[in-house]
Structures are given as structure tokens and as C-alpha cells.
Amino acid sequence: QKAIIRVIPLKVEPIVLEGEFANVAEVTPAEGKLLQSHPLSLCNTSEDEHTESGFITIVKLEQPDRDPNPCLSLANKAKLAGERGARAILFDITDDESAADQLRKPRGLSQPVVLIRGHDAELLMGVVNKNREAHVKIEVKEPPSWPDYDVWILL
């Protein structure tokens, strides 16, 4: 299921991106302040000083060979992020496409998990890199009412 991600940085034009809801969690809208989380912050041996809840966390996943022994599975990292107050978890999977498979199995996590990649992810990480406070709205993109046929035959 596609997701529409509206990123509203302070004093800068909003940007609208597209992502994909992962089946590991509910497909549901969410919104909150954007906050980056380092992949290693989502481990039981790490804690995040950020104590407010109600944020949306973005995690830039690295190539799998750069983290050969992940502390938790991606599903459990998403679960941990939710337990720490995240309203939704965005995974930039540009460098780790295997993440999509890891997050395909339904686990009923209540906070939505959205996968983002390529140019959309680049734009989002650009906001993060500028460290500009931003609000994020995640919406469920309804499928088009007309089915996606490539060819139409008009009689």
C-alpha cells in the first residue's frame, strides 16, 4: 500500500514524497515532528536521550555488510522505536533493499512503518542533513478508482 509523506520544514516549502507501507505494521496515517535515529540507537543496549513522544523517526539503513551483526531485527527495531514514543517509523532502504523483505511479514505493530527509497529518500534525508525542524504527515494513498490497464480498446 502506497503512502504519501508530506514533509513540512519550518519556513521552507513543504515537499510531498511517496513511500510504501510495510506489512509488519498497521496501514494507518500518522503525523509528528521528524527526528532522525541512528540504526544503532534502536538496540536494547542503547538509549535515546530524546524523551518526548509523538515524533516520527527516520532511520537511514546502511548496506547490510556494514552492520554484519545487527543487534535486533528490523521488525524489532521498529517495535522498539514505537515503544520509545515514535508515532511512525520511516526506513530509508535505498542502500538495503533486503529490508523490504524483512518487514513484509505481518506483526501487527500499531505504529505504521513506511519504506522510502531513491529520489524521495534523498529529498527527505536532505531535510535531515540540514537539521531543519520539520513536521511530517503520513497519509494512505488510495488506489486509483480506474484499474491500471496499459492498453484501452475503444469501440
Binding site: L35, H38, L40, D48, V128, N131, E133
Partner: peptide, 11 residues
């Protein structure tokens, strides 16, 4: 060490 600087978090 995980360092949080505004919305960013780096190692």
C-alpha cells in the same frame, strides 16, 4: 556514543 544534535542523531 550516540549524539543528538537537534533532529539529527549521529554516532
Amino acid at each position: 556514543v550516540l549524539e543528538r544534535i537537534g533532529m539529527k542523531q549521529i554516532g
